[in-house]
C-alpha cells in the first residue's frame, strides 16, 4: 500500500511534459491564422458573403441616386447621399464579425468537439475566441478596403478626415469584437441563439442609422439607438466624410468617449461572460449544453 505522503509535487513528471505556458498573443495569432486558412478553404461561403455585400452596396447606391434626405435642415442628395450610404455600409460589412461569425465558431467547435480540446488545454480561451472573431474581421477587409477607397474619392474628404474615418472604424471594431465574444459565450451557454442574434443584428442594422438618418425615427427608437455603439460610429463617420454637411448628435469628442466607454464595458462584460460560460459548461459538461 502506498501512503498518501508519496503524493507530492514530482518535478520529474512536470518536466516530462513539453507543454508550457503560452502567451495570449500567441494563442490569438495561431487561432487567427487557423481560422483564416479555414475560411479561405470554404470558398463558396466566402464568395456568397461577398456577393451579398456587393448587392447591398449596389442597392443603396441606386437608392441614393433617386432619393433626398433632409437632416437637421441640411439636404443630402446625389453624391453626399452616396457618401452617407457608403459611410453606413463601411461599418455594416463587419456585422457578421460580431454576430454570425462568433456564433458559428462556437456552434462548429461544439459540434466538432474541438471546444472540448480547448477546455482541457492551458491556453487562454479569451485569446482563442478573439482570434476566431478577428479572422472574420480580416476577411471583411476584402470588401471594406475597396469601399473605403471609393468613399475617399466620392467624399473628396481631406486625408486627415479619412484617417479619422479609419480610426472610427477601428474603435467600432474594438466594440464589435467584444460583442462577438459575448455572442460566442451566449452560444456556449444556450447553444441556440440564432433568433436572439437576428434581433440584435436587425437593431444594429436598421435602428443605428445605417441607411436612414436617426432624426427620421420616432423618438423612442432614437433612444434605443443611443444605446447601440454603431449609432455613434455612423455619426462620427458621417461627420468626417460629409464634413460641414453633417451635424453630430453630440459634440464629436463626447461621441469618441462614448465609443471608448462601450469598448471597455463590452470587453469587461465579455470577460465576465467567458468565466460564467466556462463555469456553467464545466458544471454541466459541454456534452450536455
Amino acid at each position: 500500500m502506498i501512503s498518501e505522503t508519496q503524493v507530492t509535487r514530482d518535478t520529474h513528471y512536470v518536466k516530462s511534459s513539453k507543454s508550457k505556458p503560452i502567451s495570449s498573443w500567441k494563442v490569438f495569432v495561431a487561432t487567427t491564422v487557423k481560422d483564416l486558412l479555414i475560411q479561405f478553404r470554404y470558398l463558396p461561403n466566402l464568395v456568397g458573403r461577398l456577393f451579398e455585400l456587393t448587392i447591398r452596396i449596389g442597392f443603396f447606391y441606386l437608392l441614393a441616386s433617386i432619393t433626398t434626405y433632409t437632416v437637421a435642415g441640411s439636404v443630402l442628395t446625389g453624391r453626399s447621399l452616396i457618401v452617407f450610404m457608403f459611410g453606413g455600409l463601411l461599418l455594416f460589412v463587419y456585422s457578421n464579425t460580431s454576430f454570425t461569425a462568433p456564433m458559428n465558431a462556437v456552434s462548429n467547435d461544439l459540434h466538432n468537439g474541438t471546444l472540448e480540446y480547448l477546455y482541457s488545454n492551458p491556453s487562454s480561451r479569451y485569446a482563442y475566441f478573439l482570434g476566431n472573431v478577428l479572422s472574420s474581421a480580416i476577411v471583411n477587409q476584402i470588401v471594406f478596403l475597396p469601399l473605403y477607397i471609393v468613399l475617399f474619392f466620392i467624399a473628396e474628404a481631406t486625408a486627415f478626415n479619412m484617417l479619422m474615418v479609419l480610426l472610427v472604424c477601428l474603435a467600432v471594431m474594438g466594440v464589435l469584437i467584444s460583442i462577438g465574444i459575448m455572442i460566442a459565450m451566449l452560444a456556449l451557454i444556450w447553444r441556440q441563439v440564432g433568433a436572439f442574434v437576428q434581433i440584435l443584428a436587425i437593431l444594429f442594422e436598421f435602428v443605428s442609422g445605417t441607411y436612414f438618418p436617426l432624426s427620421a425615427y420616432p423618438l423612442p427608437l432614437q433612444y434605443v439607438a443611443y444605446a447601440l455603439p454603431y449609432t455613434w460610429g455612423y455619426d462620427l463617420i458621417r461627420y468626417y466624410s460629409l464634413q460641414n454637411k453633417w451635424q453630430t448628435i453630440l459634440p464629436p469628442w463626447i461621441e469618441w468617449c462614448i465609443l471608448g466607454a462601450y469598448a471597455v464595458v463590452f470587453m469587461v462584460i465579455s470577460r465576465i461572460l467567458l468565466v460564467k460560460a466556462e463555469r456553467r459548461s464545466k458544471k454541466l459538461g459541454l456534452h450536455f449544453i
Partner: peptide
C-alpha cells in the same frame, strides 16, 4: 486527453499536419 466521438474532433478543412501544429501551438510548442 482523447474523448469519445473523435470522428469530428479536429478541423476538417485543415490537413493533419496543420491541425497538429495548431493544437501544438495551443500548448506552447
Amino acid at each position: 486527453y482523447v474523448g469519445q466521438d473523435t470522428e469530428r474532433s479536429a478541423y476538417s478543412r485543415l490537413t493533419v499536419v496543420e491541425n497538429l501544429q495548431f493544437f501544438g501551438a495551443l500548448r506552447g510548442l
